[in-house]
Design a binder for these strands. Structure first.
Length: 490
RNA sequence: GCGACGGUCGUCCAGUUUGGUCUAGGACAUCAGAUUGCCAAUCUGGUAACCCGGGUUCAAAUCCCGGCCGUCGCACCA
């Protein structure tokens, strides 16, 4: 079995994630839900993100609506740009991107945003037929990737947001004022986004409803190299890729013009340092600068943070320099001045964004942590960092006897408000260890005969399987020290 | 969305060719009990599935049609 299949099997069997509405046959693809272990892990991942990015850089976090008005997407460009002209063959009913087809067959440059009638005309003029069976083509139809929503009894048009950041742009002016912000200012948001993908596939990797953790850094475009905190990260190593790999410090990358300015370098460094703490193997990650035709329509400079998985390179974070595209268009559409004061100068901020796909990260972390221990009966171990593990520690009475239970309960009470604890008394002790490590639990506390005599317990380490004794009242400080410190575990 | 192939307990698989003996079998997992007492032990017992809808037939897991989902290829992927 390949790695992807092993991971999905683990996810299904252990309640990390599974298909939505699976009880019913009309459940459609692209919707997945997190089970108990998945939620625990996702929450911890998001905590880490908050800690290493939001708190570290004093960003402000908001939580916006998933449904937003039509005007928002008129301004953002999603209504016109997030749509593809599609034609169908009347004979074999294959469908094609109209613009690409015409371009290919007639060698005519076709703008993506061309109205349907013009597309139809081009097809007639150039005698474009179905490339598969030469059949006649239908009129062009628009396929917009946004989910359309109706509000209230009058069916007012609105949309599910295709990216979380639009609320940040729309809210920017108020947030900046009420929090007495200063440029550069990061505004962050975790939430669901929705895209009506034509063919969602591969579980959490391409969803129609998915979590994003986005950061929009608002900055003064004339001060992109005026950033004192840059020195904190200037030696951080970044791995670039443009056909070959290049590992450079942020400073070197700036000197070589691989990075456009200090601000971009600083935030890419924070991002890379964050990912080092997720347990994803740094050697299997890269920053890839996108070419012009790969970039999103709003982006001027774009890097993708990518990770190598068993099914190829996967984009985890899109890092786009969006310039003033968003604030300017919202400013024009809403007829509101969104300029702010930056040290006595009026400026329309530019935006650098770090748009992270949470679900893809969860998958990648699980895959990079999955390990089969060939030296110990092929035990499956999820070597998650302790602070990302769904369960922090197991509490296991060696024997299923009242006096062991009593001591176990005492221990559980002592630690369960601060940590995620799983109590398990069923089956052999070895089996219980194996079940815990399969979902990444870094520590197991065992209540044994000696516990009854001197209130000491065994700590068993997931990776090394080694054991040591600690006092029962030290369990809490043991966990604090070993979970929240980012030191390598034993 | 197109094409090919597929969908059976939580997971993996047998059964479909040739409709009936399938009241659907096994392994692992899981639950209960016994036993052991620090690394997936053993024994006994239990829970648990034919993707959905329609059709053919005396009879459908099995044949036919439609839908949904999955894998692969094509296309698509801010």
């Amino acid at each position: 079995m390949n790695t992807y299949d092993l991971i999905i099997q683990l996810a299904l069997e252990r309640g990390f994630y599974f298909p939505s509405s699976e009880l019913y046959a009309d459940a459609s693809a692209g919707f997945w839900e997190y089970g108990p272990n998945g939620v625990r892990m996702k929450n911890k991942f998001l905590d880490l993100w908050r800690r290493e990015l939001v708190r570290r850089d004093n960003m402000l976090e908001i939580d916006g609506s998933q449904i937003m008005s039509k005007s928002v997407f008129t301004a953002s460009g999603h209504l016109s740009n997030f749509t593809d002209p599609v034609v169908k063959c009347k004979k074999c009913s294959s469908s094609f991107r109209a613009d690409k087809l015409i371009q290919e067959v007639a060698n005519v440059e076709v703008p993506e945003r061309l109205a349907n009638e013009f597309v139809d005309n081009l097809i007639k003029e150039n005698n474009v037929t179905c490339p598969l069976c030469k059949g006649e083509l239908s009129n062009a139809e628009r396929f917009n990737m946004m989910f359309k929503i109706e509000i209230g009894p009058d069916h007012d048009e609105a949309y599910l947001r295709p990216e979380t950041c639009q609320s940040i742009f729309v809210d920017f002016s108020r947030i900046y004022k009420v929090s007495r912000g200063k440029l550069p200012l990061g505004i962050a948001q975790i939430g669901k986004s929705f895209r009506n993908e034509i063919s969602p596939r591969q579980g959490l990797l391409r969803l129609r409803e998915f979590y994003q953790a986005e950061i929009e850094v608002f900055c003064n475009p004339s001060k992109l190299n005026d950033l004192s905190k840059f020195d904190d990260v200037k030696d951080t190593l970044l791995r670039f890729y443009d056909g070959h790999y290049l590992e450079l410090s942020v400073q070197e990358a700036l000197d070589r013009n691989i990075l456009p300015n200090k601000l971009v370098g600083y935030y890419l460094a924070l991002l890379v340092e964050f990912f080092e703490k997720t347990g994803i193997d740094k050697k299997r990650t890269r920053l890839r600068r996108l070419s012009d035709d790969e970039k999103a329509f709003y982006s001027t400079v774009a890097f993708d943070f990518e990770v190598d998985t068993s099914i190829g390179w996967l984009e985890l974070v899109a890092c786009n320099y969006r310039s003033d595209y968003d604030l300017k268009s919202h400013s024009v559409t809403s007829k509101t001045n969104l300029e702010v004061m930056d040290e006595e100068v009026k400026v329309l901020p530019h935006v650098f964004e770090l748009s992270l796909g949470v679900d893809r990260c969860i998958y990648s972390i699980i895959e990079h942590s999955y390990f089969v221990d060939r030296e110990n009966e092929d035990r499956a171990v999820l070597k998650l960092r302790p602070y990302l593990s769904p369960i922090h520690a197991g509490v296991l009475p060696l024997l299923k006897k009242p006096e062991f239970k009593k001591k176990s309960n005492k221990l559980v009470t002592l630690i369960q408000k601060d940590f995620d604890i799983f109590y398990d008394e069923a089956g052999s002790i070895g089996r219980r260890y194996r079940r815990l490590e399969e979902i990444g639990t870094p520590f197991a506390f065992t209540i044994d005969h000696q516990t009854l005599e001197d209130d000491s317990i065994t700590v068993r380490y997931r990776d090394s399987m080694k054991q040591e004794r600690i006092r029962i009242e030290d369990a809490s400080s043991f966990l604090f020290a070993n979970i929240y410190s980012y030191e390598k575990m034993q």
